[in-house]
Write a protein that binds this DNA or RNA. Structure first.
Lengths: 214, 214
DNA sequence: GTCTATATCGGGATAGAC
DNA sequence: GTCTATCCCGATATAGAC
């Protein structure tokens, strides 16, 4: 499965799907881009469906690793944003999945299951982390507020890219990730009770796109 | 253009697009649903493209009317939410447009222009209203905060439906509108400086789906 | 593993009768 | 205005040679 050619096919397909949308790319397009015959492509993957499945499973695996990574305590706000950053980055890498989710979902049932699973996992993770912060005293929220907060964060995280697409912004630009992070930071900032210094450090980190140095 | 049959075609198409997605519905599907031959359908609309164009222009017209309706002053928070409600409702009525925006946008350039235009108009409208509230003292925000707030509101307004789809919630249910409104209310609530009574009345209105009685 | 050639299938589109 | 019949085309899929 992990043959050299299969890898190339996946990589090129991801690229094409991301820039033009899965629905607008045919198997022949992929083959052409690779200077390869359609027949050969079919030798490796039985059509676009299998390619999409493989890509989704890559995305799903990565996401799961990220979501189950954070140990359950000792996290600070900055860790949380690092966590968000990695999540966002992965979504951005597989952004074709977010271009037309409902179509993909109706065409490929396993994507539907996977998406729901991931959203649940994300929300659960957020709930836990924000709950920790709340108990630590860095976040002043009631439990019903947490629910709303999580919904907002999830929404930005999963729909932010689409929103920027609709606005006509350049979604391929990685800076879009930081705009999403800034939006999330804004959403939770009213509830943050950390000192100015920490707040600023996060803000600067987001603004300067240097969060990964944290 | 507004022949009886043409109207029926549009209505049924809207229904089908909303529930199955524009990309998954063929002209034949539409014809079948209407117990009509494909040939006849083509007599009225030269294919799906023309139908989609007609539907989008209906949506666009309605939206423009809404967006340019609010007089420039004397609005209270409740009016703002009524305004949001109507906007949401219209989006919901044409929700197929939000299922796979990027695909629609690449297939139909006029949709791209229309979308951008509407988002701009929305953001401009919000800016004005929120600015008014800020000057009135009902909203305590700095001007850079307003930008973020508008972005959040816009995001919920334009992407909320998609988010609920991904989560697997029933998007056809109109209650989804109120969930969106609640999310927006939550987002701006930290900045609201209105008395408890007003806050509660909005909250209750949203929760009980009775905003239209306001 | 890769190619060429070809079969198949479905949706879009039109012609012409009624 | 509406129907039937048909054509066209593009995308998927496969067979068989190299």
């Amino acid at each position: 499965m992990a043959s050299k050619t299969a890898q190339r096919i996946l990589l090129v397909s991801l690229e094409l799907f991301n820039t033009h949308g899965e629905a607008n790319i045919t198997s022949v397009d992929i083959a052409n881009e690779l200077d390869m015959s359609p027949g050969n492509l079919y030798y490796h993957f039985k059509g676009k469906e299998e390619i999409t499945a493989a890509l989704f499973s890559m995305y799903h695996d990565r996401m799961k690793k990220i979501l189950f990574a954070p140990g359950d305590n000792g996290l600070v706000i900055k860790d949380f944003f690092y966590f968000l950053f990695v999540t966002f980055e992965t979504s951005h890498l597989f952004r074709f999945l977010y271009r037309n989710p409902s179509d993909l979902v109706t065409k490929y049932p396993y994507i539907e299951r996977g998406f729901k699973q991931l959203i649940k996992a994300k929300e659960k993770g957020f709930k836990q982390i924000l709950g920790d912060f709340s108990r630590q005293g860095t976040l002043a929220v009631q439990s019903e507020q947490i629910v709303h907060l999580i919904e907002l964060i999830s929404m930005v995280l999963t729909q932010g890219l689409n929103y920027y697409v609709m606005k006509g912004d350049d979604i391929d630009d990685e800076d879009i990730i930081y705009r999403g992070l800034a939006a999330i930071f804004f959403a939770i900032s009213p509830y943050l009770s950390i000192d100015e210094e920490q707040t600023d450090s996060i803000r600067v980190a987001i603004a300067n796109c240097t969060l990964d140095d944290a």
